[in-house]
């Protein structure tokens, strides 16, 4: 379980993608995300997923992206099985599963290459209310922390003889109670401590917040943005040509 947490965490790294303006990274991720919503043939998904994996290689996060996908594999299998069970054909079920993988991996491009601080800046450039930004960024920051907590709680309860994977489906769900309760309690305690620590550092004292870093588009950002737009248009044209 422990190693899974890695697939969801931002790591400071050097790469072409990391050095881009976070707004550009968000646009790339979003366009891939939207394209995967509208794609409907296996061929299109092959192109999309290759593009996503190529970005993964360029940003040196491919391994961790694969971890994220491995993590979501249970859901992929579930989606696939449910689609088959309710009577859709094999090809359609495969497409739906591929769409899910594409959605997960396209959004992980942004989250694996942008630090929570960059996320903060992007949301601020969209003029969202700061409390909302703070809540969102904190939630993202806390995902790996809570995952690590979960791993330790599971270890601790297994050491007291709890066999999570044993029994029928209802027993298995019940087996998670000794894991979920400490996890929720720990999270509440942590959020309370965070609130106190923030208040002792004058959170909310001044209405206007300033930022140490500000975002500026550079030449390469414009270039990548144009490239992204061209590729998206090309892809849409391709879809239409195939459908025609």
């Amino acid at each position: 379980m422990f190693w899974l947490a890695e697939g969801l965490v931002y790591r400071r790294q050097e790469s072409i993608i990391h050095s881009l303006d976070p707004r550009v990274k968000l646009i790339i991720s979003l366009s891939l995300f939207l394209l995967s919503l509208f794609s409907s043939t296996i061929f299109e998904f092959i192109i999309l997923l290759s593009a996503i994996f190529l970005l993964g290689v360029l940003s040196k996060v491919l391994r961790r992206m694969i971890k994220t996908i491995t993590f979501s594999l249970t859901f992929v299998i579930m989606i696939f099985a449910i689609n088959l069970l309710v009577g859709y054909d094999l090809i359609f079920s495969i497409i739906i599963s591929l769409r899910f993988i594409a959605i997960i991996s396209s959004s992980s491009i942004f989250f694996l290459t942008s630090s929570p601080d960059e996320l903060d800046l992007v949301m601020r450039s969209l003029h969202l209310p700061y409390d909302l930004i703070f809540a969102f960024v904190t939630a993202v920051r806390f995902v790996p922390v809570i995952l690590l907590d979960a791993v330790q709680i599971i270890d601790s309860q297994r050491s007291r003889g709890l066999e999570i994977e044993k029994g029928n489906i209802f027993k298995r769900i019940r087996n998670y109670i000794p894991v979920l309760i400490p996890l929720i309690v720990q999270s509440i305690i942590r959020s309370e401590e965070l609130a106190e620590a923030m208040e002792s550092r004058a959170y909310g004292f001044s209405k206007k917040r300033t930022s140490y870093y500000t975002l500026h588009f550079k030449r390469k950002d414009y270039f990548v943005l144009c490239l992204n737009l061209t590729l998206v248009v090309l892809f849409i044209l391709l879809i239409h040509l195939f459908h025609l």
Binding site: D149, Q152, I153, S156, Q157, R160, I177, P178, I181, P182, V185, Q186, I189
Partner: peptide
Amino acid sequence: QNPGHQIF
């Protein structure tokens, strides 16, 4: 180490 990880 952390009792919070087991008490439920």
